[in-house]
Design a protein around this nucleic acid. Structure first.
Lengths: 356, 356
DNA sequence: CTGAAAGCGCTTACAG
DNA sequence: CTGAAAGCGCTTACAG
């Protein structure tokens, strides 16, 4: 059974008016007589008419949709980002066209180009944006806001987590607890967040006379954290504290310590970054930097929609200034792994209702 | 700087051919002379032309996009679902229009209607689908597949987790361990998954002579699990085992037991449902039913795309049969909370690379 | 307040 | 193999 799609012409015929009048009535234009407006609405409802999105977009030159181009959909970072963007879009009655691609440069270029004529603006997270020309060549002529993305030069408005400041804050926290020999488990070098966190760690160590930093490689996953933990224990000068560039690696490291009978925080302090849900549940609970990814997404979409609505949709690289690069500060969360309170209020603190 | 959008006419003019030829060349139609094809591609590339999505959709009557309508974006269930759908869509070169709405019936109705002319098919998860007429009245005339959704009558193809079978399996597992008095912490009654899990528990208990079930209310969150745990301990006949309808409640319950000094599994066994990432990290690690949400989404999108491509896009409620209701069985994961191995391979088992 | 008509940017029979 | 033309389903100046 192929239901025949109802068009605006059907409504017009049935209501005995022109399609122009139907369009005006349904779009809430003022210049429609009240009885006509009512009639049209009544007929449209009876016929279960709903306008054809592509047709409407083409003639009105507006899609009521924002495009979201991400490098991946895996993991909590992206799910929180999408949730934040989705909430922001919904609040302002926009749809969301989601395009993930695999890490390949050409694939992302294609994804960006394919957005033309489908969306009114773009939210982009791209590992290739630091390659000169990449965005200029592939971004459709649309307002665009970047998220957690390093640009070749500041050209588009951008929102990002202040990874550098967060790493400085955490390092300083460890130093303030009296730790002097601090090991850092770094994330992958190709990752922007990872580089910024490493940079923050190095700066904070360098700024503190007497502090001594050491660095270990990691891949942002549990396994590499575990390997780093073992290497740390195998070294001859055991550090006072370990700062892992993200929580997953901190958990892997924690497990390596547990296996070796090294107690946290008594024998060695441990800290992570991200405040993933697990962080408060492990034993000891993990000191970390909390980043609000959903809020990052929400703010970015706000900014994008403002830009779309003011029509000042300067889309080229000329419009942005440094003022348009907004960083969001993470927050230090002290837990037991650095001598803070254990498992604060877990089990009593109400959490979000989760589906199933 | 408002870059002027390049249209197919610009390419045609520049290449000295008609727009029809440009269209054919760019869409890979066979009937274009090779030199012409090359010229057109070259010009299009030089001009950085990309076709206007709405225009293309309107004239070709195809959007290369699937619509996804969900009740919420919160929590791991939805992020995994989106990830699975996204991977499936990408594999078959489709875009994904994501529309979440708040729990309200009218809002979902509007979200469904707004999909017309924007997508070629729909993936829908709806708590209102059990109300007769809701889908019939609001679904656009498009191929549609339902996900984890209870229909008034089987009318659309549907994919869902076999919550009933999972609950039966878990209850039988607890019985097989020798437990006879089993408490069940239920999820919210308005939730389909919750109802199915409860139904499975009751059936398995009823089928086992000598087994004795008791039921406690819960809301699928940690706090309600904690409350239920306290009530369970406060009762006079302490059960041998507790089966929580999801992991979050199991964790809350676990914490209540820990506070009361009740040991798991020595004093009481505990099991959950979902296998959330936390489940293997808590102490004791949690026995649970693993459900592959991403796979659920992936299969559903496969089915939808097949339907779209065969053009047999029967979209009305007549086409589906019971054969079109596919259930996916969850898998029992035995861990320490029921006497299984503690923290299996954690820290060594490589996990997915997570962004930051 | 209302309608006829042009136009949005493509694709696709239809001729040739 | 190629082009002129119609058409997809809307919106929006333009007249009246």
């Amino acid at each position: 059974m192929q239901r025949q799609a109802i068009t605006i012409r059907d409504v017009a015929r049935e209501a005995g008016v022109s399609v122009a009048t139907v369009s005006r009535a349904l779009n809430g234009h003022a210049n429609v007589a009240e009885p006509v407006r009512r009639l049209v609405h009544e007929v449209a409802q009876r016929l279960r008419y709903s306008p054809h999105g592509a047709a409407r977009s083409l003639s009105s030159r507006s899609t009521q949709t924002i495009g979201v181009v991400l490098p991946d959909l895996h993991g909590e970072f992206f799910s929180e980002l999408i949730r934040g963007i989705g909430a922001g879009a919904r609040a302002r009655r926009r749809h969301m066209l989601l395009s993930s691609y695999h890490g390949d440069r050409e694939q992302q270029a294609a994804a960006l180009r394919a957005m033309r004529g489908r969306v009114d603006g773009l939210l982009v997270m791209s590992p290739f944006a630091d390659q000169p020309g990449f965005l200029e060549e592939n971004l459709p002529p649309l307002p665009t806001v970047l998220v957690n993305t390093q640009q070749a030069e500041v050209a588009w408005p951008a929102f990002e987590i202040d990874n550098h400041a967060g790493a400085v804050a955490m390092t300083n926290h460890l130093l303030s607890l009296g730790h002097r020999r601090i090991a850092f488990i770094a994330g992958p070098a190709h990752n922007y967040d990872a580089r910024e966190r490493l940079r923050g760690f190095r700066e904070a160590i360098a700024a503190h006379p007497g502090a001594q930093g050491s660095e270990y490689e990691g891949e942002f996953d549990e396994a590499s954290g575990h390997r780093a933990g073992r290497r740390i224990l195998a070294g001859d000068a055991r550090p006072d504290a370990v700062f892992a560039a993200n929580d997953m690696m901190a958990l892997g490291c924690l497990y390596a310590f547990a296996q070796a009978g090294v107690r946290v925080p008594q024998d060695i302090a441990l800290a992570g970054f991200d405040d993933i849900p697990l962080a408060r549940f492990v034993h000891p609970s993990l000191t970390t930097m909390r980043v609000s990814i959903a809020q990052l997404g929400g703010r970015a979409v706000e900014r994008l929609l403002d830009q779309i609505e003011t029509g000042a949709d300067a889309n080229g690289p000329v419009s942005a200034s440094d003022a348009d690069r907004q960083v969001m500060a993470p927050e230090l969360v002290v837990r037991a792994s650095c001598g803070g309170p254990e498992h604060p209020a877990s089990g009593t603190e109400p959490r979000e209702n989760t589906k199933a």
